[in-house]
Design a protein around this nucleic acid. Structure first.
Lengths: 350, 350
DNA sequence: CCGACCTTTGACAACGATGAACCTCGATGC
DNA sequence: GCATCGAGGTTCATCGTTGTCAAAGGTCGG
């Protein structure tokens, strides 16, 4: 292969010093248009690519951000990752997707020491760690958290992009109530500092606002680790208890599709006997039979806001110079046939 | 924050030289148990973490492999990525997932120059490039390709893990034939050097083996870029043409679920009027209504074989010293209710 | 007791890019 | 006419590790 082509090779070919090459490439310092042209020509001709290790070692910048999620096999996460990678704000950055498998140790490692030198910033979707656990960790790089901003985070130099868990669920359940449903079951992950807890709050508040009594026997927990069968299992249990219900709010679309599968098999008609709503608006939701009513948490917006918050902090001298910020992504209720016999066609929504 | 803790800090604390610290950490050279203990204690106490840039710069090893795919939002890709990350063979390696969006330029870049210094090896799922295009590229690092090994690859130092596209499809279509179906439509991506072409070959061969005539009007192309609506759209077109069909083989499960959605809406009963089979065995397939018969290409096996081939080549002095190898992953036909009224229950298959 | 030989350790020079400091030369201000 | 300035460069040290080589200390056969 011969020696690899370095900045020195380019410099020699262009008849300048390596520093000048560096300047041209990074747009730092000053140089004449003529020099710039010679350097660029040499780069082109030699097929020179900058060595990211050397650069990283020297400048402590990597041009890479990490997206830290529990996994990528759950559609919401996969589609979120896609949005982060595609967001226009991401231009010029590399995104590495890091999965933690919901392992507390891994999450801890990513947030504090381990990544310091590898990435310029982190977008973190907490799963195993509660705010009480992750907030005290010494932050070593700019970080954006996706999820509700806890009160304790006020003083920290951490940015948040809030997902409309509670409001979205409130809207979905209110919609079910508006269809005349009164016995609305909920299949929901119940862990409190997490999305499940927040969605459950939205559920209760919607019932309350409509003056419908909360009934404990209508709420079934699901397990985050295997949502597909969890949804199916939960609905099977619910059917066995013979508790009457005419609607079902599900923690997310995956649970809802699992549930739908069992309902259909059991001869329960959706939406006639039971109206169904999920959360996330994953691609599969539009193509369920019937298409699934769901809350679109606006992944694209989440991704753009997160990257943009992160970038602004990455561009600062010291990323701790700004107090923590917090933005929200909003939501859109996508009403489809699983909750209302007449509206929604597959393939419609943007 | 103070100065960051480097190997020198550790060395001073342990009263040895930096090289000795390096030796202990990497298990190179030799050192007394006593020294080792002192060094490890110092590392522990200072919370020292090796700087990957410095190491990478020096040793040209990164402990990272790249998984290069068109995207991660399609469930097959997401689940494949998960398997690669989780494979026991991956122990001790970091996996970065790189998406190309089916862009030829990006694929080219990853295969030749661009990644050279960042990763020790690449697992590549071709999409935009044909073998004619990617084989001539100068390989700069160990590479494993997922997909059919073309004849031209014989002399190259490239390993392949073959997915049983043709055989799997043959089995699925044969199964449909065994159910007594004779007018079997196919919704398939048709590009020849890719999976679509290979699956279509399996389809034709199965018909042939059963002595059923191939009918061009039963084959409809789908578009890889948006498979969900593509499947739905294709089936809608098929229904409009009024061509009679009693079974449907789909390029993959996503297409199948899109198709199922339209069939159900149009009052076509699955499997009574039309039996349905897909490919990939994504999680969602088990929870479709009815559950989807599909070909499981054994993602876990694919992932393990790929990583293990890659590792062996990474461990060599020069990765070109071994001729190209090729392994196959096999497949399992998962028969569920979409193709046979009596068998298959949701949640059963492993 | 001496040299051969091994084990353990340390000094030093890379790896490739960049920040700090400095040098040169023509233009500008007073 | 002399100090000053900025544009356009350059030189050199340095980021944190690891490969090379040599030295220090110990063992052992003769």
């Amino acid at each position: 292969m011969g020696r690899s082509v370095t900045m020195r090779t380019v410099a020699e070919k262009a008849g300048v010093s390596t520093k000048t090459v560096s300047n041209v490439i990074n747009g730092t310092g000053s140089f004449s248009p003529e020099t710039e042209h010679r350097v660029r020509a040499a780069v082109e001709e030699l097929g020179y690519r900058i060595n990211p290790f050397a650069r990283g070692l020297r400048s402590q910048r990597t041009g890479t951000i990490a997206l830290v999620l529990p996994n990528v096999y759950q559609p919401f996460n996969a589609e979120l990752a896609e949005q982060v990678i595609r967001a226009p704000e991401t231009q010029g950055l590399k995104v590495v997707v890091e999965t933690t498998r919901g392992d507390a140790e891994r999450e801890r490692a990513v947030l504090s020491t381990s990544h310091k030198e590898l990435v310029d910033g982190v977008i973190y979707v907490p799963q195993a760690l509660t705010p009480e656990e992750y907030l005290p960790l010494p932050l070593t790089q700019p970080t954006v958290v996706l999820g509700e901003r806890p009160a304790q985070a006020a003083g920290m130099h951490l940015d948040y992009v809030e997902i409309a868990d509670e409001q979205g669920t409130h809207a979905a359940v209110s919609h079910l109530l508006a269809q005349g449903r009164r016995r609305i079951a909920a299949l929901c992950e119940q862990a409190e500092p997490r999305a499940g807890g927040r969605r459950l709050r939205g559920y209760r508040r919607a019932l309350e606002d409509a003056g419908v009594a909360y009934d404990d026997s209508l709420v079934i927990g699901v397990d985050n680790a295997d949502l597909w069968s969890s949804g199916a299992g939960a609905v099977a249990r619910l059917l066995r208890t013979r508790v009457r219900f005419d609607a079902l709010f599900c923690y997310n679309d995956v649970v809802a599709i699992g549930a739908l599968s069992v309902l259909t098999r059991s001869g329960v008609a959706v939406p006639d006997d039971v109206a169904l709503a999920g959360f996330d608006d994953i691609d599969a939701a539009r193509f369920a039979s019937p298409p699934l009513t769901t809350v679109d948490p606006q992944r694209a917006t989440i991704a753009r806001r997160a990257v943009s918050l992160l970038r602004s902090r990455m561009d600062m001298e010291d990323f701790r110079e700004l107090p923590g910020r917090c933005e929200s992504a909003g939501f859109v209720l996508r009403v489809r046939r699983s909750s209302s016999a007449t509206s929604g066609t597959p393939g419609e929504s943007p």
